[in-house]
Design a protein around this nucleic acid. Sequence first.
DNA 1: GGCAACAATGTAACCGTTTACAGAAAACGT
DNA 2: ACGTTTTCTGTAAACGGTTACATTGTTGCC
Lengths: 334, 334
Amino acid sequence: MVTIRDVARAAGVSVATVSRVYNGNLQVKEDTRKRVREIAAEMGYTPHGGARSLITRRTHAIGVLLPDLYGEFFSELIRGIDQAARARGYHVLVARAGHAGDDLLTAFRAMRGRVDGVIVMSPEFDQVSATRGLPEGFPVVLLNSPRTDVGSAHFGIANFEGAHAMVRHLIQIGHTRIAIIKGAERNHDAAERLRGYQAALVEAGIQLDGRLEIPGDFTEHGGYEAARAILALAPRPTAVFASNDGMALGALGGFRDAGLRVPGDIAIGGFDDIPMARYVDPPLTTVRVDISTLGARAAASLLEAANGNSSHAPHDETMPTTLVVRRSCGSSSS
Amino acid sequence: MVTIRDVARAAGVSVATVSRVYNGNLQVKEDTRKRVREIAAEMGYTPHGGARSLITRRTHAIGVLLPDLYGEFFSELIRGIDQAARARGYHVLVARAGHAGDDLLTAFRAMRGRVDGVIVMSPEFDQVSATRGLPEGFPVVLLNSPRTDVGSAHFGIANFEGAHAMVRHLIQIGHTRIAIIKGAERNHDAAERLRGYQAALVEAGIQLDGRLEIPGDFTEHGGYEAARAILALAPRPTAVFASNDGMALGALGGFRDAGLRVPGDIAIGGFDDIPMARYVDPPLTTVRVDISTLGARAAASLLEAANGNSSHAPHDETMPTTLVVRRSCGSSSS
DNA sequence: GGCAACAATGTAACCGTTTACAGAAAACGT
DNA sequence: ACGTTTTCTGTAAACGGTTACATTGTTGCC
């Protein structure tokens, strides 16, 4: 591996000069610069990023800690983050930071000295506490987590509003007995969506009924199971709000296997608007979230903080959601 | 930011001792070790990965260069890579290495000193050449690229065999006039799938017809456009093999918009078996590829090479594919 | 008690860069 | 010709760790 010293020796200059050439420092005579460039190219020299960042204290990379790497939600998120990062000349280090206790902390440690800041998504309440005891002043932005004093910024989704809009829509088209398939326990997004559901019902003067709040886990399989639980209810709900599209899809399968027609016999609404939502039969009414933009915004905010431009106070941004009406609920004209 | 020297001073030992404690070196007395650990924890010390890797020459990270970060193919790939990497204590650095000329080379340079090896996916023929002029001995595994002498290993998909099996299936259930929607130009996977299609036809004694080879670009929109081109053909093909599922979905929409029934009026087959394939109506007959395993295998191979265990000669592995028959082609019983 | 062997720790060189500071050479004004 | 400034280049000290080697303190053995 050829180092800056090898190049310097070959070009008959000092390492400082070579370094200056590579950093666009103007204080180098034109022909010296040219000679160094040529020799370096010839030798196949590439500056060692690690060494450089040791002294400059900038890695030009940001870390992303995610609970999971599965599915379109994350691919969209990473896409948005990468896009914003690369636009500013930054790289992206991705890692799974599991659900297990100190997993997050371990991942954090591993990133020390490798990244200029971290985007953390840890929807589980307790994990955020693990974020404490991290080097202070280290830029962190939190995604979809309950607001805390940790982190320089916080980005989230309008879970409450989205769920609220969805359920209000169901009520508007005539449903009064509406079940919800809840998201994972101790998950912040899930809790907010449940709140939105309840608020919409209360506003419409509909009595809350705990039996209509079916446990779920955000997986397709969980949705399928939930559908069976719903079928056992008497009287049967006429509509179901699944806390995410994955579960909505599972429930769709469950109902169909039981011989019910959607939306004829039972209406279903989801949340997220994953690309698949448009393709199922019937197409899924759901709540759209622009995930890649969420990621891009988070990355942009992180990089601002990392570059000291954190002029503005701790940032807290919530991405709006929009209701996307398709056929799985029956249109309002039905 | 607290360094190893701060800890050493506070604990009244030398930096060497602290370092030894953190590297599990046994040559440290039990109570010294304990004291150092306590003080370090109290001060919130975290070893600086960058500094460490400078001298150890191991970063415990691998880089992944992808042409795109969009869709389920990549999310699955990254998931597999991350899984294999983390199982061995490695991290993953993801970057888009665009289609533009020397983009790949730039990305490569940026990774120098940050990763122990790189997984490169560059289905475009010409890009691989850019891979030359990289530090020799640097572990690189190529994904879905034409075989070359570059890189320590090569992983791919059985594109030819998969396409061949798909088309043979179409022939078996009675089709003789079969169109193909081709993949992106100059793309290796696309070229192989086309070869598989042609071979299956030739084997069945069916005359090749260039007009049945519709251009495509692997996007859903491209599939939609291709469907319109196919409808203009006379006589109309009775079956279409789309070079990937995205285009198959687009074509499905195109045919439906034109009032055709699938598979009644025209059969469609795809390639990849993205999760969505199961959910569309009718469910898509396609060729399954285990993408996350592909990623995991590639990562495992890379890490072996990076750790000098490259006992075996340059590795070349092809992931098998399996035909998944669903309803979009009509079953063989039809 | 003296000496070898061993265990625990310290000293300092090194990894590949950047950059403050200093020195040399060239250009300038008088 | 000479001092002064300006431009270019070199020297060496960081950055935060690891590790070969040297040093010190113990123990075991005769």
